[in-house]
Simulated scan of single mutants.
Amino acid sequence: MSRSGEHLKDEGSKSQVVIAGAGAGLIARFFIAPLDVVKIRLQLQTHSLSDPLTHRDLHGSPIYKGTLPTIKHILKEEGITGLWKGNVPAELMYVSYGAIQFTAYRSVTVALQSAFGERKLPAAIESFIAGASAGAIATAATYPLDLLRTRFAAQGTEKVYTSLFSSIRDISRNEGPRGFFQGLGAGVGQIIPYMGIFFATYETLRLPLGTLQMPFGSGDATAGIMASVIAKTGVFPLDLIRKRLQVQGPTRSRYVHKNIPVYKGVFKTMFDIRRREGIRGLYRGLTVSLFKAAPTSAITMWTYERVLRLLIDMEARKKTAKD
């Protein structure tokens, strides 16, 4: 009898896990790209929506209020392509992240099971450690692409970067290698509890929900949604801080929000946002983030499970044919 969580971690070869993880990330990213752009625009909006006196400090920045009004504003000012800004580095990031994440998750779990042997860790603890480790590794490895995704999504009608190549060249020239890793501390600080909570919750819910008649034929998608909402809400302030730090540098005042303050350090940024914008300032874009997180996680986990199962079945058929 397999324990909760062993299905995801033990099945499939390393190459099958890589392919399934990369495919899941690619497909999920394409469908949620517009919500991702909206979330970033809301997170970078620093002025108070309740105090009209701050409007004099907008410097031409738009005022976004809610998900649908933001989408309409982007469509009106920037066209349909505005909702997919940053999609190229984001697709590269999601493919790489998905492959690295699931591979690391599987590898860490196997290592933990080998290290503890018969003294097995509780499934929830094992999933938390594996999920947190996988998230940290994948975040650090793909962080430059995450930063580029944010900067492209933050561009309005003014072109800060004309292409992916030019953005890499300009950041290297003007900010050096450290420019690609601004806000990494917040990213890792966010992803460790997020992925730990996500995988622990997902593995706990997946098997019980799998016995119910759920959408798409199983409880994978529903478990992914519930796990993502719980984890995302808990660490959202760090996600917002990461976005604010990612647009720091010589191009800070050229994005769609031209009044972004100068931030330095995770904790200083947190205190500054709290002082300037109140506690609500740390949760700008949370609603659309949760709307985004649900379909992203559902599509990712559902696609991963199906692609991995398909690859395993294809391999089994090949072995049967040879025999």
Rank of each mutant, 00 (worst) to 15 (best):
S4Q: 13
K9F: 11
D10Y: 14
K14L: 09
I19V: 14
I19K: 02
G21D: 01
G21R: 00
A24M: 02
P34T: 06
L35D: 02
L35C: 03
K39N: 08
R41D: 03
Q43G: 10
S48A: 08
D57L: 15
Y64V: 05
L68H: 04
I71M: 07
K76D: 13
I80K: 15
T81W: 10
G82S: 12
G82Q: 05
S114A: 15
F116E: 03
E118Q: 15
L121E: 03
A132K: 10
G135M: 02
T142G: 06
Y161E: 06
I168Q: 08
E175K: 05
E175H: 06
E175P: 07
L184D: 00
A186L: 00
V188Q: 02
I192E: 06
Y194G: 08
F199H: 13
Y202F: 14
E203A: 09
L207R: 15
L207W: 01
L209K: 14
G219S: 12
D220T: 15
A227H: 02
L238D: 01
L238G: 00
I241H: 02
R242K: 11
K243E: 07
L245R: 02
V256T: 13
I260H: 01
Y263S: 02
K264F: 05
T269S: 11
I279Y: 09
I279T: 09
G285P: 10
G285S: 15
G285R: 13
F291N: 11
T296W: 06
S297H: 08
W302R: 15
R306C: 05
R309Y: 03
M314A: 15
